[in-house]
C-alpha cells in the first residue's frame, strides 16, 4: 500500500478547484484511492462529495493511499495537486 502525507497549503483548502482537480485525477485510477485527515477515517478520493465533506482546510495534513499498477505515479500527482499553493 503506497501512501503520501502532505500539507494542504492552498488558501481555500481542498475545496473548489483543488478538490475538483484532485478527484478528477484520482478517478482515472483503476484501483481504489483514499484520502484521510492525519489520524482520521479514509474516504473515497474519487468522490467529490466525500472530499468536500472531508473539509480539509489550509495547513491541515492529509494522507493519500493507493495500491495497484501505477499507484506511485498517481500518488505523486495527487500529492502535488493537494500541496500546491
Amino acid at each position: 500500500m503506497g501512501e503520501r502525507k502532505v500539507t494542504v497549503t492552498s488558501e481555500v483548502g481542498l475545496h473548489a478547484r483543488p478538490a475538483a482537480t484532485f478527484v478528477q485525477t484520482a478517478a482515472k485510477a483503476a484501483f481504489d484511492v483514499t484520502v484521510a485527515k492525519a489520524g482520521g477515517k479514509p474516504v473515497n478520493a474519487k468522490s467529490i462529495l466525500s472530499v468536500l465533506a472531508l473539509d480539509v482546510r489550509q495547513n491541515e495534513s492529509i494522507v493519500i493511499e493507493a495500491e495497484g499498477e501505477g499507484a506511485d505515479e498517481l500518488l505523486d500527482r495527487l500529492a502535488e495537486i493537494a500541496s500546491a499553493p
Binding site: A16, R17, A20, Q24, I48
Partner: peptide, 9 residues
C-alpha cells in the same frame, strides 16, 4: 471554470 467546465459535476 471549475463550475462552467463541470469539474465539480
Amino acid at each position: 471554470p471549475v463550475f462552467s467546465q463541470l469539474m465539480v459535476g
